[in-house]
Amino acid sequence: MSVVTAQIAPTGQQNTEALVNAVPAPPTLLTVSGLGWLTVAALVIGLPDEQMVDRTGLLATLLACAGAAQLLLWAGSHVAPVLAHAGKWARWFVALAVMITAWELATAKFNVLPLPFFASPQAFIAVYTDDFPRLFDCLWHSLLLLSEGYFLGAAVGFVSGVALGWSTSVGYWAHPILRLVGPLPATAWIPIAFFIFPSSAAASVFLIALATWFPTTVLTWSGVASVQTAYYDVARTLGANQRCLVLRVAIPAALPSVFVGLFMGLGSSFAVLVVAEMLGVKSGLGWYLQWSQGWGAYANMYADLFVMALMCSTLITLLFKLRDRTLAWQKGLVQW
């Protein structure tokens, strides 16, 4: 054993060196991007505004802060090499500086893009400073509505999927209904839902739940149905009863497929959320979109879209994290 260790020791040291070297050197591109952002800040404050805009000062300050932060990261990475990992985003920082400059010049500075439809960066930022309470309230209500509908739909979808996959008699009755009704987009139920349900909030929850339910149930079902019989055989010879076969074999084996269903369900629940909010609720990101369009407040629309994108992306990321934890036993998972 010790001989073996002695033999591999030098290689091991080389590997350690390689690892140390693998920590990126202080990324010089960060200085370029940092100075770039500072330049953009100077441009913003230096050039006169052609359009009527507030918050030019705030925009310049934010840009300058971002530029300074990049320079600090670069300087700090000499002391704490961990910070050097930020270097991998340096090219993005440069590209963003270019894009923001183009955007600022085309709108606020030279008024190339006509005003009501295209908002300048300042106007975009002004939405968050001036209309924050309303926007935050909308985000909160959207999250509330979405989670009610999504969890309901996912829970019912999971249970019905397991039942469909496990019990032939449930499958016999539910399969034709599922085949006929399931593929209908949930939005097709809107007229009926708003008519049947006592409140538009309840109708919206129902629609979101429905949109989540279908992919979840179909993929849970197919996951349970395609579990290798060998696992059941092994479990049975080890003394498992029906309950144990479902809970400890069928469901865990089906989980990868269940997660595919949950992802698809989340995607379609976003779509339904926006539509439902445009139709029936008085607060929510979808409602805000329509409300700001009614006022011709395009900057508000863009700001709202940005929040929406952040929300959806965060939720998808959370689901990915949950999946990666739950399915740690699978190799070769896609990293998000």
Partner: peptide, 26 residues
């Protein structure tokens, strides 16, 4: 009367310890 099949057919979602414990747990 336990069977050991030609393929190990370990439950991939359980650690080795949990696999071994499956019968007792069941």
């Amino acid at each position: 009367r336990v069977v050991v099949f030609q393929d190990p057919t370990l439950f991939p979602w359980l650690s080795v310890w949990r696999n071994a414990a499956f019968g007792l747990q069941a």
